[in-house]
Design a protein around this nucleic acid. Sequence first.
DNA 1: AGGCGCCGTTGAAACTTTTCAAGTGAGGCC
DNA 2: GGCCTCACTTGAAAAGTTTCAACGGCGCCT
Lengths: 346, 346
Amino acid sequence: MARRPAAGTRIPSIKDVAAAAQVSVGTVSNVLNRPELVSPATRDRVERTMADLGFVRNESARQLRAGTSRTLAYVMLDASNPFFTDVARGIEEAADELDLSLFLCNSNSRASRESSHLARLQQQRVQGILITPVDAESEGLAEIARRGTPVVVVDRTRRDADLCSVSVDDRRGGRLAVEHLIELGHRRIAFVGGPLSIGQVRDRIDGARAAWRAANRPADALVHVPTDALTVADGTAAGARLLAQSSRRRPTAVFCANDLVALGVLRAALQAGLRVPDDVAIVGYDDIDFAAAAAIPLTSVRQPRVELGRTAARLVIDEATNVAHEHQQVVFEPDLVTRASTLGVR
Amino acid sequence: MARRPAAGTRIPSIKDVAAAAQVSVGTVSNVLNRPELVSPATRDRVERTMADLGFVRNESARQLRAGTSRTLAYVMLDASNPFFTDVARGIEEAADELDLSLFLCNSNSRASRESSHLARLQQQRVQGILITPVDAESEGLAEIARRGTPVVVVDRTRRDADLCSVSVDDRRGGRLAVEHLIELGHRRIAFVGGPLSIGQVRDRIDGARAAWRAANRPADALVHVPTDALTVADGTAAGARLLAQSSRRRPTAVFCANDLVALGVLRAALQAGLRVPDDVAIVGYDDIDFAAAAAIPLTSVRQPRVELGRTAARLVIDEATNVAHEHQQVVFEPDLVTRASTLGVR
DNA sequence: AGGCGCCGTTGAAACTTTTCAAGTGAGGCC
DNA sequence: GGCCTCACTTGAAAAGTTTCAACGGCGCCT
């Protein structure tokens, strides 16, 4: 087979290829980048030599010369939440179309991890950064954009329009969920989720309260049960606490800040021997695949996750390449997907 | 506040900083890399200038000089399977300790996406590649290692020891699951999962059959119900088909190739009005968080996911930095976590 | 006073690729 | 034969950082 460098040997550079193929480095570079300029005979010889030597282009050198990389990055809030992996899939699709690589980073909801990722991405001179930030109003994000790396906020709206953002109307989503419960005749409901430092949680409960008020229901008939995080475990714990109350005090419906929490509450309800939705109805948020697949399929507020990612990627690329770029705040509309957890078997 | 380059201006380089701070580029570099060599006064001045100008180190140039990057990459088989995001978390932890970044890529079980990711990672001169490959025996992986980028196979064992690999004994896991079912007295069981091109699936069913044989149960009392992929949807479909049979023919227990499939089967069982585990017991594989959180908590074969990732990361770093490195095949032992889906409420 | 060593700083080389102006040589035309 | 054109190839410069040998002062010792 082909000759190959012995283990431990330096990876051959364009120079080595040039020497072996008896041409200049310029020609080798042309074979790589503008093959039509090179005579077929030379091209063949160079290509064979590259294969022979096991040549691999050095992206750093390219990038140094070009001044920019062919990479996008998405800093996710929580890689173990399927919602964000779906958003990532949308970004990936858009990146693929333009032959850009995608760097996925996970901040795990921690500001310190987030900022170390951001520092690294700037140093790598990525074409653009997509981020679902711990704090959407952070001045640091604008600072990065000012220094030349486009930044798009995903799944949050930024108050002042100094950055692009793509989000879903969470207030509306909260309203949709609660209007559905009102229509079904529920008179005592709970909102489970937290912490309130997460903007998404704030907006969803705001929307829920607005709908509740609009239907003239007393404010204290909508209780907020806070959780430390939006996880299944926290949902289970909060659900168990909430549903342990006597049936006269217990809410007849629970609206959860996301599907992970809702799955936890569902589990707590079934463990407590309650029937869903007869004893307690449950509404989730995000409509992740597990929601439809739950033991009792969850009614949930659907967000266009993949679309969210795809749009964000397009915006960041526009900002990186189009001089006439103007910042946009794209807001998608959520919709309600009704399933057995509120409707029962039909 | 600080002076900053106008929008659209080139990011300042070390040279610009040197000029502004009235020192040589060497000194600026020293401030960055060996600050103890620089007098406090100069260091201060340079640091202030860097902040003023908004200097951001150019990683490409660094890398070009150094010949290698401070980055690890993990090519995952399926980013939407929580098992792999947990493995990724383990890798991340190990990478963090060494101040390496982690590049997450998703092959989505497609060989073409996998190889384009691999090509890109080589060009980026990553320190090492961790991969859960579509095909663990692929010659391409060894080729990459031969060209100088360490490769570690995650969650698969490689037959010939030309690469490091970290995996869990899937055959053993299959045996554990079926031994548990035999102990509970089940005499007709099913294995749900596919395709068989996935090594993990092959090994798990092999282990299951071995345990079944060892207990002298007839081979045809363990049926294999194949699926196209290891997803909740495929599990639901296969489960519905399987459990629609008359109670005399229907298996009394189902062992699934992973938890996603098991959650699907569980859903199908509940929808068919069957009681779990009284009418049908279910065993999953992976013990992802959703397994414990399911409506009927799933008995599952636990794998040390985070540990898997952490070990793989350590191996790849050892290979990258230690000249005396020797390839290893690390095999972890799975264990069975029993829950309500086989035991009922206790 | 002359020599030595030390501290802090300097300037140039190197890493690999891309780009581009300039060069070579063959072939055609007058 | 001399000149032009065309196709192809060349060599050097440039990108930003790190490293390292060398240098200039300064204080100390003899």
